[in-house]
Design a protein around this nucleic acid. Structure first.
Lengths: 241, 241
DNA sequence: AAGAAACTTGACCAAATGGTCAAATACCAC
DNA sequence: GTGGTATTTGACCATTTGGTCAAGTTTCTT
């Protein structure tokens, strides 16, 4: 049921799965939502149960009723996040054209950063702590997943359909390029001189990432010709600066 | 003197700069070092003065004597970090060959992640909090710096020496690709199946990043020919998996 | 309707935390 | 040496924090 920690769902639970009315589900969801935001902004250590309770619009004791401890609530938040985490990589399958597959993957990751920045931050925060609750997930579920995707990429490479320096690091760097737009949104916004990152910025981010990675893998980005350096040309700017 | 916050150097300071013996300097340094580590692992909210004191091997009251408050100590840590932060970009100047300049820049950034992972984490942590203490730095010092480097890159592009989708996002993504090896070290180590990231892993990371970015900018990575896709070849793996 | 189970919540508690202080000690210029 | 300044540090304090609890209210089940 919970893949993060034995303490994730805690306390006085004896199989209330869907037995009880939906009050339970609704409240849990509300709390998880609030907790995600607070953990994202303050980290595990900086977040307070009172803060989360206020964000959720519920008395603090209520959180403890549903999740037992702060740790368990945190674990539940992580669990919630991980489910969505791996899915984007579904784009990478042997049958597809490498360029299309990678482009889709990158765009999906960027979209994820745009839609769920808090989730990304919580994950990042947990990594920086040393991932005490996710070590296992990383070393097994994620690792296996990566191995599978690496196999696909190496397959493409053997067929001469892609040129990749190091498939594993390629993935790491795609993750980095895309997650940065969630975790470092303030920095990027400040440098771009905008209040917050909007659709225009994310579009430019996606275009740049796709172009860099595809070219980087010896592929031609759709609609973006790659003239040989030496021929006169100007910066191919996208939507905005 | 301090660029982060008016409260960075606080309390009972009236210009002791280098007046007093070096006890002051030595202790401040020792505390800053310990604080950097603790803030990196726990974030601002999760770090405790007692924890930092223990890490520094000093009584807690001593930290308050030198830095006044937790906030001020944190600000001092950030300040310390920022100094080093911008320097790597010195590689990017108009006269240099774009390929060499970018490769140097990327390798310097990766090296920074390898040598000062805690600094990187503290910075990342501050960004995720919304950068309450660095908003100003980001919007001015960093922004100006970026504008300058973007101008250089656009200059190269006008001369047809480089093909870049969006210079600003190119920089963001180089930052991301390189910092990820500090901030997400546990994740990467777990996926690679190693205990910690060593020289071999950082070498592979650097090679991959340089290759991807240079090719991505229509440049040829030194020593790494880019065969046209379609020609038979195998994965060009570097040092290790 | 009635009993049971699920849910709510204000009041409370012990521990931890940031911060203060004053007494003691080390250091230094003359 | 001696007086003054800088440094050290244990003891102390107010506040915050995670967590508990028991008395109440609501919601199901039969």
């Amino acid at each position: 049921m919970d893949s993060v920690s034995g303490a994730a769902v805690s306390g006085q639970d004896h199989d209330r799965e869907a037995v009880t009315g939906n009050i339970r589900q609704v409240n849990r969801e509300r709390i998880l939502q609030a907790a995600t935001t607070v953990f994202a902004d303050a980290g595990f250590g900086g977040a307070t149960m009172l803060g989360i309770a206020n964000a959720a619009g519920l008395p603090k004791a209520n959180l403890h009723y549903y999740f037992g401890t702060k740790q368990a609530l945190y674990a539940a938040v992580l669990d919630n996040i991980l489910t969505v985490w791996l899915d984007a990589a579904d784009a990478i399958v042997p049958e597809r054209d490498p360029a299309v597959a990678l482009a889709d993957y990158i765009r999906a990751k960027i979209e994820h950063s745009r839609r769920f920045p808090q989730a990304s931050k919580v994950f990042a925060s947990e990594m920086m702590r040393g991932a005490p609750l996710l070590k296992d997930f990383l070393a097994h579920r994620l690792r296996d997943r990566v191995d599978a995707k690496v196999a696909v990429i190496e397959g493409w490479a053997r067929q001469g359909r892609i040129v990749v320096p190091n498939p594993r690091h390629l993935l790491f760097q795609i993750w980095a390029m895309t997650q940065t737009y969630a975790d470092f949104a303030v920095q990027i916004a400040a440098v771009l001189g905008v209040e917050t990152l909007g659709p225009a910025e994310f579009a430019a981010a996606g275009d740049t990432a796709v172009t860099l990675i595809l070219r980087g893998c010896g592929l031609t980005p759709p609609g973006v010709p790659v003239p040989a350096p030496g021929s006169r040309q100007r910066v191919e700017t996208a939507t905005q600066n």
